[in-house]
């Protein structure tokens, strides 16, 4: 994994953005930007070159699934690694995310180790 890659962390709760950022910093990533929902994230994607998105699902306005679909539907971002970190562990949610092209899926609550493993999997493909 390239530790200088630019990572966009999307969650409506500052708490979860902080926890995800803590884990990313522990791994050694330093280039991290944030968005508080899908529409803010789409704004960031328009002006910044992002290498990885880590996004929540349940958010006001544009949710994580809608964000994923928008990312996959845009020529410039369609292959962007996209990890969903969500409390939605029910089967149909996972299936929906997979069908929309999610790169990996982390269920909250999660350990730092679990998030790290999923990241490694995404970049070893």
């Amino acid at each position: 994994m390239d530790l200088s890659m630019k990572i966009l962390v999307v969650d409506d709760f500052a708490t979860m953005r902080r926890i995800v950022k803590n884990v990313l910093r522990q791994i050694g990533f330093t280039n991290i930007v944030e968005a508080d929902d899908g529409s803010t994230a789409l704004g960031v994607l328009k002006k910044d070159k992002i290498d990885l998105i880590i996004s929540d699902w349940n958010m006001p306005k544009v949710n994580g699934l809608e964000l994923l679909k928008a990312v996959r539907g845009d020529e410039s971002t369609k292959n962007l690694p996209f990890i969903m970190v969500t409390a939605e562990a029910q089967k149909d949610s996972v299936v929906q995310a997979v069908q929309a092209g999610v790169s990996n899926y982390v269920v909250k609550p999660f350990t730092a180790e679990a998030l790290k493993e999923k990241l490694e999997k995404v970049f070893s493909k």
């Binding site: 709760f13 500052a14 708490t15 979860m16 349940n58 969500t86 409390a87 939605e88 562990a89 029910q90 089967k91 269920v107 909250k108 609550p109």
Partner: peptide, 23 residues
């Protein structure tokens, strides 16, 4: 505010986990 935000997210996670078991 940080504590309030954290309590919201803890509540979210408890609801998500419990809903998985209920499913």
């Amino acid at each position: 505010e940080e504590i309030k935000d954290a309590v919201g997210e803890i509540t979210n996670m408890i609801s998500g986990q419990a809903r998985q078991e209920l499913e």
